[in-house]
Write a protein that binds this DNA or RNA. Structure first.
Lengths: 150, 150
DNA sequence: AGCCGATACTTGCATATACAATAATTGTGA
DNA sequence: TCACAATTATTGTATATGCAAGTATCGGCT
């Protein structure tokens, strides 16, 4: 048997960060989606609603920078949530811009979602542990100023 | 202003594990996908190829249990990779089963992918830090025996 | 004014992902 | 053996996600 070849696959299998992170992402995303399902809300959408709530007037490019989301991804997410009446587009002097904000309906939804969120958050914390949550926060913080030098 | 309402949104915004985990998952997935792009391979696919390589004969349900993937997701991923000649389905006595394995072509691809993987892995490690990678591994380990008590 | 590069989104396309429903097969108990 | 539950995978539908290409607008420069 080819020892070198086998070991490169073994190495990936045993140490790949993407495998671990993506696996846990699937599991944890399901925690939140399960909890939020009765509200007709997905965690991906809740994330955007929360960002909009915090920003007041949200500009797509700015939201994407915060969440490290592709603008095209956000564009379609916003589209769906506009259709549901959770977000509304605001007028703007700049004809290119499509700033949006949470509607009253959207805010109500977020408030109603808080208990479900809490439940999922507890499950996630129990699985991951407090320390890892802290460290994830630090990594996100590290990201904010990275790769934006040109 | 309604203090209690605002603070529930603030709490989510500042502490939500899903936000952090999903954000980092997007960023890290892009590290790997960028590195693997010249090979026409995505990290999601590489994960499955590696699992298949390790298992020899891979049964879909078993792969899904390992990776915490929905069977329908795997089904279509395998379909694409069969079409590319990276995987092949094996005959089986049980008419329901569709066990598959890596083809020689698939194995070659994995070997060629190793340097790209290593590069992405280093970027990921630099962003996340060694400790977090360890802890992610522990969380995955914890998962294996969880939530399977019928 | 008029051209042109930069900016801000949107659209086309492919893949990833999951839930619900379906299909095919197996095993089991009467 | 036959009916029925259980197992294993696929198909229908919806959302998420990103890259490339397209559209519209803005701002400067001549």
């Amino acid at each position: 048997m080819d020892k070198a070849t086998t070991s490169s696959i073994d190495t990936i299998s045993q140490t790949c960060i993407a495998v671990r992170l993506r696996l846990l992402n699937r599991v944890v995303t399901n925690f939140y989606d399960d909890a939020l399902r009765p509200l007709g809300l997905k965690v991906s959408q809740m994330n955007i609603l929360v960002a909009a709530a915090k920003m007041g007037t949200a500009r797509p490019a700015e939201v994407c920078e915060r969440l490290h989301l592709d603008v095209s991804t956000l564009s379609r997410n916003v589209e769906r949530m506009k259709a549901r009446g959770w977000l509304e587009v605001l007028p703007d002097d700049d004809g290119r811009a499509q700033p949006f904000r949470l509607t009253a309906h959207g805010r109500k939804l977020l408030e109603k979602a808080a208990p479900a969120w809490k439940q999922a958050q507890q499950r996630a914390k129990a699985l991951l542990g407090d320390r890892i949550v802290e460290l994830l926060g630090e990594a996100v913080g590290r990201l904010k100023t990275e790769g934006r030098s040109p």
